[in-house]
């Protein structure tokens, strides 16, 4: 009896995890190996730096990354001077000054990545729909980094008989397959200096890793602390079990 009950309860505990996964009707993207997966996974700093390059040279033309400040780039392995240099390449609107006018100045580390459009309507006016902000994209889409990589590499010709509007494109991993974004990447598009292959697949991998970092910058800390917490609790559980056994010894 006890066993039946325990089995039933185990099922009860597992169900929510699975049913939450079962929801949604997107196409399952291929599962890739990522260095940041697993209980002790970490980000590859070189990949993050390449991913930043892809974002800055391609994605940032249309997509904002408004929750990331230049100071956050320290996580990617840049030192203060490098961060200052990156920040100063951007123009930031500040103000009002003493005359009450807004003015432009070069960026500083505490500034955030400027958005390509002043507001949602302006973005929609150019693109038909607003290109989503990318700071949280891997958390806001099922399959996270796999999804980002799959979308970037999933462009192909529309099947026979499918009529697409000029502003529509066919992507085998987009839910519903029709996507407003044109294929953004092509081989050799971005210059890598460290000898990494300059392919669409590699660009997509790097930018997906970068965006995962952007969405979960705390991940490495989280897993490290988590391992310590679990270790502590497990030892504590054994100690507590010993205490309990000792106290209950005279009852049994």
């Amino acid at each position: 009896m006890k066993r039946t009950l325990l089995t039933a309860l185990a099922v009860l505990a597992v169900v929510p995890f699975q049913s939450a996964q079962a929801a949604g009707d997107s196409v399952t993207p291929p599962h890739k190996y990522w260095g940041f997966h697993g209980y002790d996974g970490t980000y590859d700093k070189a990949a993050l730096q390449r991913g930043l390059k892809v974002y800055r040279e391609v994605c940032s033309a249309c997509h904002s990354l408004k929750r990331i400040a230049f100071r956050n780039l320290a996580d990617l392995g840049y030192n203060e001077d490098q961060i200052k240099a990156i920040a100063s390449e951007y123009t930031i609107q500040d103000g009002p000054d003493e005359e009450g006018e807004m003015y432009d100045r070069p960026g500083i580390p505490s500034d955030y990545f400027p958005s390509p459009f002043p507001n949602k309507q302006a973005a929609a006016a150019v693109h038909g729909v607003m290109p989503p902000d990318l700071s949280l994209i891997t958390k806001a889409r099922k399959y996270g980094a796999d999804y980002v990589h799959a979308i970037l590499t999933g462009y192909e010709a529309a099947p026979e008989g499918k009529k697409l509007q000029p502003s529509q494109h066919w992507n085998k991993y987009m839910p519903g397959h029709v996507i407003a974004m044109a294929a953004p990447l092509s081989d050799e598009l971005i210059e890598y200096e460290d000898g990494t292959p300059m392919t669409v697949d590699q660009y997509a991998r790097d930018v997906a890793e970068f965006l995962t970092w952007a969405a979960e910058p705390e991940m490495e800390d989280r897993k490290r602390i988590g391992l310590n917490v679990l270790l502590f609790l497990t030892i504590f559980a054994f100690v507590m079990y010993g205490v309990k056994r000792k106290i209950w010894a005279d009852v049994h």
């Binding site: 939450a20 929801a23 209980y39 958390k139 806001a140 889409r141 099922k142 989280r222 602390i225 988590g226």
Partner: peptide, 12 residues
């Protein structure tokens, strides 16, 4: 909390 913090939530 530490390893699957968003598994019980919805990406949306």
């Amino acid at each position: 909390i530490f390893f699957f913090p968003n598994s019980l939530g919805h990406p949306d």
